[in-house]
């Protein structure tokens, strides 16, 4: 068997899929929540990036990974509220507002990194912490499965729990009912006294919190430092995962796993004698292809004419 194939069928490869899926999964859940409330959140990329940096800075200054986590989540929430303020109160086009926030995050993080660490590339001079890995007692001893999900970063477990939580939140709570009603027919929600803006603000804050967790995982779990533009499009891949997962948390989970798989594969292929640039292209090309195939299928079944 080719070493690459052998690697792909190994439990450690499966474990690495979960690891690289984590940030995209968080962000795609954030995309689902925002989208069901009727707001397209393309600022996920920027939210992740800012949270990744804020987590590193806060954990470096307090010496606590969990304070870093909270700081990252809080910055995601703040970004969500800013997006909400401009889109909902000042009626900025939501796509353009998202672009603005992404731009702000891309260069703003470099600005902040330079102000704090006097470096424009990476945060390695900051003594930042990482989120702990956890071993789950009994499960870690089960063969294969134990190797896959027995020992992972705490944020990976949190992401898996979040899938279930977000599902219950959206489909079984009364607030979830309101959120979906707001997304489907805001006038209807408004006419029964539901504050559409309040619901959308909360949805955006939650969306930002989820993206923030994804960002924290990148800089405090996946690796242990912040580097400029380290999200490299994961926020946008999450949007594709949301679409592919039919705006449903479970669907978004499965779609994220697919992207996690290609990402993990490209990591494993680094050892091959293929130019690195090609390998790095894989996740983006796969996203493009999947997006095209899936949209095409939906077009046929839904007969949706152009918007």
């Amino acid at each position: 068997m080719h070493p690459l194939l052998r690697a792909v069928f190994s439990a450690s490869f499966a474990a690495s899929i979960l690891r690289v899926t984590t940030p995209v999964l968080f962000a795609s859940l954030g995309a689902v929540v925002a989208d069901l409330s009727g707001v397209v959140n393309i600022a996920l990329e920027g939210m992740m990036l800012i949270s990744a940096l804020m987590g590193v800075i806060a954990s470096a200054f307090t010496g606590s990974a969990w304070v870093g986590f909270l700081a990252g989540v809080a910055s995601g929430i703040l970004m969500g509220l800013v997006l909400g303020y401009f889109h909902l109160k000042l009626k900025t086009n939501v796509i353009l507002a998202g672009i603005a926030l992404n731009l702000l995050a891309a260069e703003g993080t470099v600005f902040l990194l330079y102000a704090v660490a006097h470096d424009k590339g990476v945060s390695s001079s900051l003594p930042s912490k990482v989120m702990p890995e956890i071993q789950i007692p009994i499960i870690k001893d089960i063969p294969v499965i134990g190797a896959i999900i027995g020992k992972q970063n705490v944020l990976t477990y949190l992401a898996l729990i979040a899938v279930v939580m977000i599902y219950l939140f959206l489909y079984k709570t009364s607030f979830g009912l309101r959120l979906r009603a707001v997304g489907e027919n805001p006038d209807a929600a408004d006419s029964v006294g539901i504050s559409v803006h309040k619901v959308q603000f909360i949805a955006l804050a939650l969306s930002g919190a989820l993206a923030g967790m994804g960002g924290v995982h990148l800089s405090m779990g996946y690796v242990s430092w912040f580097s400029r533009n380290m999200t490299s499009g994961r926020g946008f891949i999450a949007l594709a995962a949301k679409a592919l997962g039919r705006n449903h948390p479970i669907g978004a989970f499965l779609a994220s796993l697919l992207f996690g798989f290609t990402d993990a594969l490209s990591n494993y292929m680094q050892s091959l004698r293929v130019p690195g640039e090609f390998i790095q292209m894989i996740p983006y090309v796969v996203t493009l292809v999947v997006l095209a195939v899936y949209s095409g299928r939906q077009l046929k079944s839904g007969r949706s004419s152009n918007e």
Partner: peptide, 26 residues
């Protein structure tokens, strides 16, 4: 123009905004 969410049920639309709940659950 009816103020209804098409994918929700008749009952869900009627109680929307004043939903009966058990704790946080609908």
């Amino acid at each position: 123009h009816f103020m209804l969410a098409p994918s929700l049920t008749v009952a869900e639309n009627i109680v929307l905004g004043a939903e009966p709940r058990k704790g946080i659950w609908f």
